[in-house]
């Protein structure tokens, strides 16, 4: 519920979204209901992609891409417009780095990063708060402005959703 509300605040009917870690498309489907623009849904597990393609068969604004988000240039050929939101939900230790790379390449100046962090998939040994702080630090160091941190506690203390604004450095 909390997450759904958050999505409704930060993603609206004019948002073009780059979604990393689409899995079989549950969240992508929600977003596809909200926005009238394109959702680029990247997922690298063949099995999940198979389901994603099936689940999004009737959703004409979803573009399902089987690719590794570590290499954002590999899906450049499918993208043809400005990206308003980069949504990252990939349970990987380096998810923040992946998020930053993708923003750097695609996200518009002032665009939003939505980052779903699962502490356990980053490090099982460290205290949860330490992990969250470290990831937040990484984003801030890259000049993102943290807008909101949504914790799911007490339901799931392990998860944190970060919303941040991205600024293109003048070159």
């Amino acid at each position: 519920m909390i997450l759904n509300n958050a999505r409704n605040i930060y993603i609206n009917y004019t948002s073009t979204v780059l979604y990393l870690g689409a899995s079989s498309g549950t969240t992508v489907s929600h977003i596809s209901d909200i926005t009238t623009k394109t959702i680029y849904a990247v997922e690298f597990a063949p099995r999940s992609m198979r389901e994603l393609i099936q689940n999004c068969n009737d959703r004409n604004n979803v573009i399902p891409i089987l690719a590794d988000a570590n290499y954002p240039e590999q899906y450049a050929k499918f993208i043809f417009e400005e990206i308003d939101v980069v949504y990252v939900d990939i349970a990987q230790p380096n998810l923040t780095e992946i998020a930053i790379l993708n923003c750097k390449k695609y996200l518009k100046d002032g665009g939003l990063l939505i980052l779903a962090i699962k502490a356990k998939s980053i490090d099982v040994a460290l205290p949860i708060q330490t992990i969250f702080n470290a990831e937040i630090q990484k984003i801030e160091n890259k000049g993102f402005e943290i807008l909101e941190k949504i914790s799911l506690s007490p339901y799931s203390r392990d998860h944190l959703m970060i919303i941040a604004r991205f600024y293109l450095k003048p070159t």
Binding site: T38, P46, M49, N60, I65, F78
Partner: peptide
Amino acid sequence: SVEELTIISRKNAKLFSRDRIRESG
């Protein structure tokens, strides 16, 4: 138009992704 590009890109992406699924198989 954006509509036309969406249709083409979607077709390409599905073709490409399906083929990679097949290769992984």
